[in-house]
Design a protein around this nucleic acid. Structure first.
Length: 349
DNA sequence: TACGCGTGGCC
DNA sequence: TGGCCAAGCGT
């Protein structure tokens, strides 16, 4: 691992912030001002999610719920509808709980340090440091994927970023480098750097504004960084989705209140054995020969739609919903895929 | 600590 | 195509 002199640290801050001031993405909507509510909402949305995906969601969310109190007092259904399609839905539920905590436990007075901000539901070490530095000028590094990538290369840090312990190694190495006057801009500049020149794939370090500080690049070993151990691959699972119709309505089932897609409505999904084949279907009418596939981080679902006639007994977590009714709900993307496939089969109009 | 948790884009 | 990546957090 490289260790920088005070002189080198000064030069780096200068070079980085000068680039950020002239070439950074100043037009991002959450950078218009530093109100902590805007920063909170944007940071939660941006967790594991790309900027281009977030943009329309952020604008819609802020115009519908412009203040912390609006969010605190909103129906959860409204919040989830604003989040529909964005994924990781517990973020939305936690965000609203955070707004309620700020409004009713803190009387609207924000905690101003990263340490205290971590009390908010859904706000971990990264998000707390981002808000503290951007909105309250606390001198802390916001260690996220970009930070890991950028500084692992600049300083040739060999620790495995897949290990939770490594966060502290990076925090300690970066803390003395954070600009003491503009910590928020420093953190955001690193993010811009990580999503432009110092990307995960095909980095363009030759033209990077801090290429002279990039030791991995200078030593021609950039692609060895960051060091990251492998993830397990997605498990394959097969399902039948049963379609029951009654007076123009379709049977939906509410998923359990924990686990994958908690509390969301889908068609009744029956998991099959791994060696299941469509020819195994003996009851009902198969609607799609090729399964609908949907990939989560750890799961790969293959789903066949089967139209059934007689519902044995409606369970308490099942309801017949008309199109007017289910269109009001926030539905996960996999369910939208099933509805689209069903529509294409002209079974439901 | 390791895993569960969504979705879309890229090659 | 499948595998990996993208401004992480909670348990």
């Amino acid at each position: 691992m490289e260790k920088w002199s005070n002189k080198k640290i000064e030069l780096f801050r200068q070079q980085l912030l000068n680039w950020y001031d002239t070439q950074g993405r100043a037009n991002l909507p959450w950078r218009k001002n530093h109100e902590p509510y805007r920063v909170l909402v944007s940071e939660i949305m941006l967790q594991q999610t790309q900027v281009d995906t977030v943009l329309p969601y952020f604008e819609r969310f802020m115009s519908t719920l412009p203040t912390v109190k609006d969010l605190a007092d909103a129906d959860e259904d409204v919040v989830l509808k604003l989040w529909e399609g964005l994924g990781y839905y517990s973020r939305a539920r936690h965000l609203q709980k955070a707004a309620q905590f700020l409004t009713y436990e803190c009387n609207g007075v924000w905690p101003t340090t990263a340490k205290d901000l971590q009390q908010l539901p859904g706000v971990g070490p990264y998000t707390a440091a981002a808000i503290a530095s951007i909105s309250f000028n606390e001198v802390v590094p916001a260690v996220d994927g970009n930070m890991f990538r950028v500084f692992s290369r600049l300083l040739k840090i060999d620790d495995d970023i897949a290990r939770p312990k490594t966060r502290q190694v990076f925090y300690d190495a970066i803390l003395p480098i954070v600009d003491p006057v503009r910590p928020g801009d420093f953190n955001q500049a690193i993010m811009d750097l990580g999503s432009s020149y110092m990307t995960a794939k095909n980095p363009d370090s030759e033209h990077s504004p801090v290429k002279d500080f990039n030791q991995a690049y200078l030593d021609d070993v950039e692609m060895n960084y960051p060091v990251k151990s492998k993830k397990v691959k997605a498990i394959r699972q097969k399902f039948l989705a049963y379609i029951y119709e009654e007076n123009g309505a379709i049977l939906f089932e509410k998923r359990p209140d924990s686990g994958l897609l908690a509390n969301f409505w889908t068609f009744p999904l029956l998991q099959q054995h791994d060696d299941f084949d469509v020819s195994d279907i003996t009851q009902g009418e198969l609607l799609n020969i090729k399964p609908i596939t949907h990939i989560f981080t750890h799961r790969r679902w293959e789903i066949w739609l089967v139209k059934r006639e007689h519902l044995p007994e409606k369970q308490s977590n099942q309801r017949f919903l008309t199109s007017e009714e289910w269109q009001q709900l926030s539905l996960p993307t996999v369910q939208h895929k099933l509805l689209k496939s069903l529509e294409e089969n002209n079974v439901y109009k």
